[in-house]
């Protein structure tokens, strides 16, 4: 009837004739990856992210030296022995970059997972309940949204002095869950008013089952998007806090590398690679996550769960 109806009708013509039973979960996961892979931008992101994860996991095998070994010459230029030169403290820059990937990847994923978890829990329950409590949560979430995150992180980190990675993950999660919760809440609200959710209630389903089996699976792509966005923010925030010297400055990470580079006046000594390399890695890691996000739109598409392969 409408032009949209026309196109759905057109799509419906392609009803597959053969269907070979319900899909198994492994196949669903595989097809999810294939879905992301099918978007060129996301493909670049997957390759980049894969490279960084490999770097982090196999750091002991890949890195030419220990990251904390400061027995080399100070502020050396690039050479065969030290491809990216050495730091002002006499450490190998390349090894530091490789080991540093561990912190960024770990913080990104850990903070991303926790922030997303809170966002999902708050978003779902907040979207599903229709009481005064909803208004209170609304206010709290909005408060967390408008309060500038980095200054809040800085203040908390300043009180918790040198708390290390755990502290950084904590402050990133505290400040990072709200935007996801808001998005997921509005999606929950729109889904809960759909007929199929009411129908599930008519089918005698418990509230928990309605939320987790009917509503949640329809938000897969939003949740994944939220995870990648939270992880990106976490990686950037972690680097920022460490750059200010608010983390544990003795660990080797891209953020602390920049902190030491700035403090040892790498700018004046012309050690541009010490500034350039860690920042580029942070940007590339963050970019890879943003790029993958271009491909997650298809994840809530039921076609992923089709029994027959295309």
């Amino acid at each position: 009837m409408t032009s949209t109806n026309t196109s759905t009708a057109l799509a419906n013509r392609g009803v597959p004739a053969e269907i070979d039973g319900p899909a198994n979960p492994l196949r669903v996961v595989w097809r999810a990856i294939a879905t992301i892979w099918s978007v060129p931008k996301a493909r670049i992101g997957v390759v980049l992210l894969g490279a960084f994860i490999a770097l982090a996991v196999f750091a002991p095998l890949i890195a030419p030296y220990s990251a904390t070994d400061n027995s080399f010459g100070r502020s050396e230029d690039m050479s065969a022995a030290h491809w990216l030169g050495t730091t002002a403290a006499g450490q190998d820059v390349l090894s530091q970059i490789i080991w540093g990937a561990r912190v960024s990847v770990f913080v990104g994923f850990a903070a991303g997972i926790f922030a997303t978890l809170i966002a999902v829990l708050v978003g779902l329950s907040w979207g599903y309940i229709r009481t005064v409590a909803g208004d209170v949560i609304n206010f709290v979430v909005n408060l967390f949204l408008v309060i500038p995150a980095l200054p809040l992180m800085i203040v908390i980190a300043a009180y918790l002095q040198n708390g290390g990675i755990g502290m950084i993950i904590l402050v990133v999660v505290i400040t990072g869950w709200a935007s996801g919760a808001r998005v997921l809440r509005s999606q929950t609200q729109s889904l809960r008013s759909r007929d199929f959710v009411t129908a599930a209630v008519f089918s005698g389903e418990s509230p928990g089952r309605v939320v987790f089996r009917e509503i949640l699976p329809n938000m897969t792509s939003l949740i994944v998007t939220n995870f990648f966005a939270a992880a990106t923010a976490a990686i950037l925030a972690e680097a920022g806090l460490e750059f200010l010297g608010l983390g544990d400055t003795t660990i080797v990470s891209w953020g602390t590398m920049l902190f030491w580079a700035q403090n040892s006046n790498a700018l004046l000594t012309g050690q541009w690679i010490v500034l350039f390399a860690p920042g580029l890695c942070i940007s590339l890691l963050a970019t890879s996550l943003s790029l993958i996000n271009f491909g997650v739109d298809g994840l809530s598409n039921p076609r992923l769960r089709e029994g027959a392969s295309r």
């Binding site: 759905t8 007929d195 199929f196 129908a199 009917e214 699976p217 329809n218 809530s300 039921p302 769960r305």
Partner: peptide, 10 residues
């Protein structure tokens, strides 16, 4: 009423 909305697509 709406057969497109009354069934969970997944």
């Amino acid at each position: 009423q709406d057969p497109y909305a009354a069934l969970n697509p997944l």
